[in-house]
Amino acid sequence: MAGRPQNSGFEASAITVLKRAVELDGKGRFTESLVCYQEGLNLLMEVLKVTTDDVKKQAFRTRIREYMDRAEKVKQHVEQEKEAGKYHEQIHIVADSTNNSYSRILGPFLDEFTTEVHVEDPYIRSAHQIYNFLRLCELLVGGKTKVKRISLTTGRDEQGNAQTQQGRLDELKRSLSDYGVTLDVNYSSTLHDREIRLNNGWIIKIGRGLDYFKNTGKFSIGFCDMDLRKCQETTVDIFHSKHTAQNR
């Protein structure tokens, strides 16, 4: 009896995550869907372990096999497109939508082979824009990656205070060095493109760059948790280039 509520909780969580996987799969957001398929399947496996009813166990095995088959097909599709140099995935972030943090958008493309990240964004200038870049750096340092070098190319804050901008980025550089990460900052007056390149081959181009979140008060929900903050409308295009990937 004591195991039933836990079992029910795992099953409900699995259903929610797998529905999300199917939804993302249908939208062509394959890398995100693979993450959800894996998480959902792990939860279903836990349910199967504690299920004693033979009929239910067989039903769970069937569902697990179906989801595993679909996940494998998605994985093969992604690998084939990557191998052919034709992979392209697009995410449309709707105005006022939430659950679009850097972790959700960029996380699926970060792995243990990610050691260098190159960011080109002309607007890492004002305080909130530098905070955005800081949040990205926190994701890179705190995740499963082994990032050792981050390079940023941006524009100087000519209309504000270039010295303040420099000081803030220098502070971030010192902080990252405590984690064994080198930050290189370069300035360009002609930079217009916005993209993030990972040395595992992924290239992420965000229409608005890192600054796609709406402003919120410092004591409002969403100020710290970016998944709770409303967004500006933008498009994210994801490509994979074998030419930028390291030999493994």
Rank of each mutant, 00 (worst) to 15 (best):
S103P: 01
E120I: 03
L152C: 09
N199V: 00
K49R: 13
L228K: 13
V78P: 10
F223Y: 15
D96Q: 11
R70N: 10
K230P: 01
I15A: 13
C36N: 15
G167I: 00
D184A: 10
A71N: 08
D111T: 00
L134A: 07
Y212C: 00
L44W: 09
G143Q: 04
K49E: 13
P122C: 03
E112I: 12
R125H: 08
A2T: 14
K242M: 04
R63V: 00
E79S: 13
G180W: 07
F133P: 03
G155Y: 01
A127S: 10
G143T: 10
R248N: 13
R61W: 03
R229T: 02
Y123L: 06
G209M: 05
N247D: 14
M45N: 14
Y123D: 09
S151L: 04
V185S: 00
R194I: 08
M68I: 01
R104F: 08
N247H: 12
M226N: 07
N99A: 10
K82R: 15
K73F: 06
Y179P: 03
R197F: 05
N42C: 12
Q246F: 10
K73Q: 15
K19M: 05
T62H: 11
S241N: 04
A84H: 06
I196G: 03
E39P: 02
R29H: 12
N200M: 07
L110Y: 01
T16G: 09
R70L: 10
G3L: 14
T164I: 10
F213E: 02
G40A: 11
A162Q: 07
T115K: 06
L176W: 11
T16L: 15
I15M: 12
N161I: 01
R63P: 01
E171A: 13
T51I: 02
A245M: 07
Q159C: 07
F109P: 04
T234Q: 02
T153I: 12
V35S: 14
F109C: 02
Y87W: 11
I196W: 03
I221K: 14
V236A: 05
Q163L: 00
A245H: 03
F10Y: 15
G85E: 08
Q166P: 00
P108T: 02
K242I: 03
N247R: 13
Q246D: 12
F219T: 13
D170S: 11
F60N: 06
Q165A: 00
D237Q: 01
Q163W: 00
H118C: 07
T51M: 02
A84D: 09
E120K: 10
Q58E: 15
Q76Y: 09
E89D: 08
M45A: 13
K173L: 03
T114L: 08
V141S: 08
Q129P: 01
E39N: 12
F10T: 05
E81I: 06
R229E: 02
K49A: 12
Q163G: 00
D184R: 09
I206W: 03
Y87V: 06
I93R: 03
N7M: 14
D96N: 14
Q80H: 11
K75V: 09
E79Q: 14
D227T: 05
V117P: 05
Y102V: 04
N199E: 03
